[in-house]
Design a protein around this nucleic acid. Structure first.
Length: 381
RNA sequence: GGAGAGGUUCCCGAGUGGUCAAAGGGGGCAGACUGUAAAUCUGUUAGCUCAGCUUUCGAAGGUCCGAAUCCUUCUCUCUCCA
């Protein structure tokens, strides 16, 4: 059942970075790979067709959201999310653990699972690890994630122990449920490492999950409000505990600098809402740092966001026009910016893969970040 | 020509003697955003040598300890009637 889904194709000579191929139900994914987030079965502000044409073959959906809307009956009648949403590539679904974590006051976690209230209508629901596997089975996820308990920074050691032990127990139950479904369950199920910001717990969690029958492992509970140095320290530490032969996925990171850190540490997958959310809010990635399109200095700028970028925004429109769209609240602005940010990250990761293949990832990263982090467009303040 | 209403800080618009540099919108400017309760949220928006001081509510005078608020004149706008 647990066939090998990942092959490393090259290892960078100067770091732990690696390239590989992930073979999933809807085609291969070259790694490292960034995964755009499409929580509700749509990557906000862009056609699936464009996402696919850009080169993305693995996007996210969210168990929590899709269970609440449109609900399992609809998804089941459509034979899953691929057909429902007309996406022919791969889909990874997050379990909803992060959403439940994000609903303080609306949730209660017990050994059995998570009780929560819908943020849509206040109705009460319950997710057990088994049920979450079942829902993702209905969705038809190519990669399903176990239900986990994500914790914020600055919690007590004792509480962090409780959370990761719970996540571990839930992981075992998730696997058991997957095994019950047998061949019917077409996707692969990934485990999630927790352990908060305690190295002993990260290590225990990573080792415990590594010994289990998961075809891939994720690092959860990072980028939840901790400082960048802390993120980096725990990313590096935790990644090193994971088995080399399985794909490693860091959940929820998407700024260029975080992606670089992840790739350097041998991470193969990452996803984030940042690119698409920032885009809708008017900020685009450039090699010189993030650019807020609404800012006044763009008014007469007839150049593209990024020279050489192949996206529609850069190909057909100027910074001045994009500024105008955002100032008018025109939805095209958000759509174009979304396309740009996704194209930008795709290009960036492709450049990184190329650097890895040529054993020069460290120089590539240093050169890129020196320019990106100088943040040319940051205001004086 | 007659009757009435009114001119408030970039705009709209509250405010009818001190607690008003003046509510609230809008616009402007800036900041944030990292497994999406987000096409969202936050800050700021007279000037200065920002504690404090100076100028500001159509204009000019006046009353008062004190005026965006009261009085006089002027000016402009709008509505209705001729």
């Amino acid at each position: 059942m647990n066939e090998r889904i990942f092959q490393t194709t090259h290892r960078d000579a100067g770091s732990k970075a690696r390239t590989g191929v992930l073979s999933l139900g809807h085609g291969d994914v070259v790694t490292p790979a960034f995964m755009p987030v499409g929580t509700n079965g749509t990557v906000k502000g862009i056609y699936h067709e464009k996402v696919a044409r850009m080169g993305y073959n693995l996007i996210l959906g969210n168990t929590f959201h899709l269970y609440l809307r449109p609900g399992l009956e609809v998804l089941s009648r459509y034979s899953g999310l691929h057909r429902f949403s007309h996406w022919n590539g791969n889909i990874l679904t997050d379990s909803g653990g992060f959403q439940i974590f994000s609903l303080p006051g609306l949730r209660r976690i017990t050994q059995e699972g998570a009780h929560f209230q819908s943020p849509i209508d206040g109705s009460r629901h319950f997710f057990s690890p088994e049920k979450v596997v079942d829902i993702q089975h209905v969705i038809g996820s190519d990669i399903a994630m176990v239900l986990d308990w994500c914790t914020p920074p600055d919690i007590e050691h004792g509480e962090a122990v409780k959370a990761w032990k719970m996540t571990y127990d839930w992981a075992k139950r998730s696997l058991a449920r997957r095994n019950e479904l047998g061949e019917e369950f077409k996707g692969c199920l990934f485990g999630i490492v927790q352990g908060n910001f305690y190295k002993d717990l990260r290590k225990e969690s990573a080792q415990a999950l590594s010994e289990m029958d998961f075809p891939g492992l994720a690092i959860g509970g990072l980028s939840v409000g901790e400082k960048p140095e802390v993120f980096k320290e725990f990313l590096e530490y935790t990644a090193a505990q994971l088995p080399d032969e399985k794909p490693r996925y860091v959940m929820g990171i998407g700024s260029p600098d975080y992606l670089m850190e992840a790739m350097e540490n041998g991470i193969d997958l990452f996803d984030c809402v940042l690119a698409t959310r920032m885009a809708r809010n008017g900020t685009v990635f450039t090699d010189d740092g993030p650019l807020v399109l609404k800012r006044s200095f763009n008014e007469f700028d007839m150049g593209p966001i990024s020279e050489g970028c192949q996206c529609t925004a850069c190909r057909d429109y100027s910074r001045g026009y994009l500024r105008h769209l955002f100032k008018c609240g025109e939805m095209l602005g958000g759509m174009l910016a979304t396309e740009h940010n996704l194209a930008y990250l795709h290009d960036l990761v492709e450049k990184a893969r190329q650097a890895i293949r040529e054993d020069r990832f460290i120089e590539f990263k240093a050169g890129y970040l020196a320019r990106y982090m100088s943040n040319k467009y940051k205001s004086g303040k």
